[in-house]
């Protein structure tokens, strides 16, 4: 026993002597090695964030040489603005419809694609195309399809004997149309992630479920599929939610926030205030609110789901 432990003692004794000096040197070297990452993160992430926070307390307008700190006045004005509240409501409504729609549609398509080998590659690519296509270009195509007189949708409605709808020019349908486009655009991404998650489920878990008597689709979903893709599901929901919160291109191209602000969303408001009206300080305040909401929702989602998600 003593013979065994003595070399270790010798090593630790030898290591103890120059400990403080070598520790200092080690610390310096550590900082040196991490400097590129620290500097990049500072310049690209924390710097701009800090700048935005500072701007939100000023009355700076883009291009002006002078500005002054005005405290929380931007925020006071913001919270008193009915258009802001309307855009906030629209954004939440959009997210609440797009996230479940994207996740459910993505999951269904993934499960269907995984259950058969027929033309798998083709279908997978076809469903992924909306993700790869440039949103503003696709928005123009959608705009044409939803056009009241020449649009495909209304022609189908006419064919079925209904009267047409002015999809994007009607307060009641404009946001819904944007939601559909949002789902169409995002579910392919969810599908690809779900397929990866489904592939990782071992076959014998399905077998065990079947032997145990869980042989309906719903039972299998609940007992095997959903728990096993839990981490993926969680990731897809967070990513989809954040993406839905930052919806902008379709609004800009198709409705410009109208009619009557019914499709005005946070990011569109931010863009309008900052770059159309050049109210940079006010826009910065909007950005801070936007960031706060996104971070809060991500954290909340992570916290709620973490408790129910099984990471093996």
């Amino acid at each position: 026993m003593t013979a065994l432990s003595s070399p270790r003692n010798a090593i630790s004794a030898a290591g103890a002597r120059p400990a403080s000096a070598s520790k200092q040197r080690g610390d310096r070297r550590g900082w040196l090695y991490s400097a590129p990452a620290v500097v990049t993160m500072g310049v690209l992430l924390f710097g701009p964030l800090l700048a935005v926070m500072l701007f939100s307390l000023t009355d700076w307008q883009l291009g002006q040489e002078q500005f002054s700190f005005i405290g929380a006045r931007n925020f006071q004005e913001l919270f008193a603005d009915t258009v802001f509240w309307k855009s906030l409501r629209n954004t939440f409504l959009y997210v609440l419809l797009v996230v479940p729609g994207t996740v459910i549609l993505g999951l269904i398509v993934a499960v269907l694609l995984e259950s058969s080998n027929e033309l798998k590659g083709l279908y997978r690519t076809a469903h992924f195309i909306p993700v790869m296509a440039a949103t503003s270009a696709m928005a123009i195509v959608w705009g044409t399809m939803l056009h009241p007189t020449i649009g495909l949708f209304n022609h189908i409605l006419y064919g079925l004997g209904y009267s047409g709808v002015s999809w994007l020019r009607d307060e009641h349908t404009a946001l819904l149309a944007l939601v559909l486009i949002g789902i169409w655009q995002g579910f392919g991404y969810a599908m690809v992630l779900f397929i990866a998650g489904l592939k990782a489920i071992p076959q014998n878990l399905y077998d065990a479920a079947e032997i145990d008597g869980a042989d309906s689709v719903m039972d299998r979903m609940r007992l095997v599929v959903l728990p096993m893709i839990g981490p993926v599901l969680m990731f897809v929901m967070v990513v989809t939610a954040v993406r839905a919160f930052s919806v902008f291109d379709t609004v800009r191209v198709l409705t410009a926030g109208g009619p009557n602000y019914s499709t005005d969303v946070l990011l569109y408001r931010l863009n309008t205030e900052s770059f159309d009206y050049l109210r940079t300080g006010y826009g910065a305040a909007l950005t801070v609110v936007f960031l706060g909401i996104v971070i809060a929702i991500t954290l909340l989602q992570a916290k709620i789901m973490d408790r129910r998600v099984h990471y093996s």
Partner: peptide
């Protein structure tokens, strides 16, 4: 018959327990 109706039980090499339960 589906496995459920056959009154058989099966034990797997990799145990196949539900990891979240």
């Amino acid at each position: 018959d589906r496995p459920k109706q056959r009154n058989v039980a099966m034990v797997f090499q990799s145990y196949a327990l539900y990891p979240h339960l």
